[in-house]
Design a protein around this nucleic acid. Sequence first.
DNA 1: CTAGGGTTAG
Length: 465
Amino acid sequence: MEKATKISPFRLSSLLRLEKNARLALKLFRNPRATAPATPPKPFRYSARSYDLIICKLGRARMFAEMEEVLHQMSLETRFTTKEALFCHVISFYGRARMPGPALHAFDRIPSFRCRRTIRSFNSLLHAMLNCGELERVQSLWRDLDEREFVPDACTYNVLIHAATSSGSLGEAWDLFDEMRRKGIRPSVATFGTLVSALCANSKLDEAFTLKKEMLKLHGVKPNVYIYTSLIKGLCNTNKLDLALKLKEKILLEKDIKLDSAMYSTLIRALFRDGRKGEVVRILEEMKEKGIKPDTVTYNAMIAGFCEDEKDFDAAFEVLNEMARNGRKPDVVSYNTIIAGFCKERRWRHASELLEDMPRRECRPDVVSYRTLFEGMCDAGAFEEAGLLLDEMVFKGYAPGAVSVRKFVEGLGGEGAGDRAGPALCSLAKVKAAGVEVWEKAVGDSVNESELLEVVKFMDRLRMD
DNA sequence: CTAGGGTTAG
């Protein structure tokens, strides 16, 4: 009987690998002996591999409390030491979830697992801060870096260059590029990817194409599909869709470059924008011929096309169905796109319905979902509903965008919205969504005395921040 | 998934 229920550490690893659902995987991990809780325990000897698997599963599922618990359990293990790579993952998970504090904390604790930190985990941390939008943090980490402890590598510079471009400073990016070469660190294809992408995003197509040539001639680095996708997007955004399509044809002839769904997603979005929906079918066929499956982003590009350009919401919903048929789960972008489309057409009730339906569709609305609908309601003059939505989003910890806050406050100032304005302003204050000027304009006669006091208190706090 | 591309919002 015992042999039927006993699971070896090795077997646990394979089971964990197969279990897609993080919650179930955790259950499995915590109770590896399938039955007989009565048979007591010598402690189960978890393998390092099992820890890797469960921690990464939990991190991907953003079950951070559980992930930390398992990390702690692992720290008590003496039979093996943890690889730095696992901490790199953990730091990235926090970065992707925009949790800079925990990311830093994870980095700080690596030595307590008897694991030596290298430039790799430092790079992970740097990148996590970039993902969190903490650009000044990226700067300070870089400034305070002790190069005797961590020797910067190409990856370090790639993150720094990315940070520079995303703060809009191409000049700084080039300085870093020069600096790394002075130090004898060879730029990688990722370095050029970042630079080409930034040039394209700034409509500097000529420079982008020049750099593409130089990377091979001067630096011996071959352009890959990432580089080409940036270039194609750059062409699309400067009204050169036909050139973009030609470039795609040229790449098809290149032996060692494999096109992928990202490149096709770019083209599909651009075709819709140019009113060339008819050609999308051909593109989809081409993908099929090449064995490239549309992914969620590809479908989202079509949804955006149908909503923004074609105003064909039935078709957009049909794409959702198509995704279901092909086993691609619509994500928050899929829904946000439709919500935005409805709002642009002033059909905020439809947008609202969809947002309410998202949980049933197993997708949690995010800050963009709420901001989009909130602004849509304000634009349509539906301030009462906007106020209700505001309460809900504040409750969830989401702040509306600055522009819609202004619209909202101005809208409330209109015909005798007195009773609604006060509570709504308090909500805004709670998430500090409005600047001081907005308050001073807004706090007229529409707020009663106790509410005024509340708002003034919040204003003081705003001033101090 | 230590670094680069593609879809939404601002």
